[in-house]
Design a protein around this nucleic acid. Structure first.
Lengths: 155, 155
DNA sequence: CGAAATCAGGACTTGCTTATCCAAATATAA
DNA sequence: TTATATTTGGATAAGCAAGTCCTGATTTCG
């Protein structure tokens, strides 16, 4: 549905929204269980796309560049991978330049449905949802280190 | 949304349904504009999955193994790639074994929407649709060789 | 039977995504 | 200023999907 990088991006952004403070790559990697070295690249892309802000040096790290209430899942995904919507006939058939054939109309409809769903929820929505479920913490966090981390962050 | 192989599979199956007769790999490749060598692998997979039947030797080729009215797009796609539905927490978090976290619930909903759309149409539906659009022939066919081929097949 | 047509399957290449690792730049704190 | 914590960016490898090519097995036709 979405690439691994896109899933990692969503987990990282959720983690940052939940923390509400700057987190280092290492911290995000622990919480989200994303390989730290690769996460570094993902965060770099998110920074270039203006989704997160980065700060180097001691006490540096990453923060959300925009309020989570105004950041949809789709925006995060779109920042790291191109849309799967079918704009023009993949077979370059002239007659289909405007009107897609029945097959590609269906495939495009599927892509549209996915984007619509991803656009319907903000990062803040998901953070709030997970807070409302007492025994089910956010899936962007792992079990042991996560709890420790959350406690630490809130002290 | 779906893999390249899955798209090739759909084009090939539509082509076979439209022809209503056995077609060789070369013929399907011409009409669908799929690389012949690769299409050979795709058709092999479809045969193993029971979607098409193969016949070797002179006058051999591929035919649909089942009536197109009872073959959904989803069945064709599922024959060549695994479902994107999220059955269990990708982070293996125990609490999420049954209940997915908000993020993965959304991602699974997106996958479900795609599969629902692909399940809602049969191969026969698409063939019929393209026949109803006089100036827009099926996108599984290319322009020049396609017309020639169709004429040839119907003689 | 022999020739031609056709699928089956294996070996291999290519390109992209995912992933690892390290040196360099930069920011903070004491 | 010096030590330390961090991101940045490059080089590189591993894994998988996509694509190519060739040989062998099978079927039909004359």
């Amino acid at each position: 549905m979405i690439s691994q990088s896109a899933e990692y991006s969503l987990r990282a952004v959720l983690c940052l929204a939940d923390a509400g403070a700057a987190l280092t790559t290492q911290q995000i990697a622990l919480v989200t269980r994303v390989p730290a070295g690769y996460l570094s690249k993902v965060l770099q892309n998110l920074a270039r796309a203006g989704i997160v802000s980065s700060q180097r040096g001691l006490n540096g790290g990453f923060t959300l560049a925009r309020p989570p209430t105004e950041l949809t899942l789709l925006e995060v995904v779109a920042a790291v991978e191109k849309s799967r919507r079918i704009g023009e006939c993949p077979l370059a058939i002239p007659e289909h330049a405007v009107n897609l054939c029945p097959l590609h109309r269906r495939l495009d409809a599927a892509a549209e449905a996915v984007e619509r769903l991803l656009h319907a929820a903000t990062i803040a929505d998901l953070v709030k949802e997970s807070k409302n479920e007492p025994h089910v913490h956010a899936c962007h966090a792992n079990k042991e280190p996560c709890h420790a981390r959350h406690v630490a962050l809130r002290d």
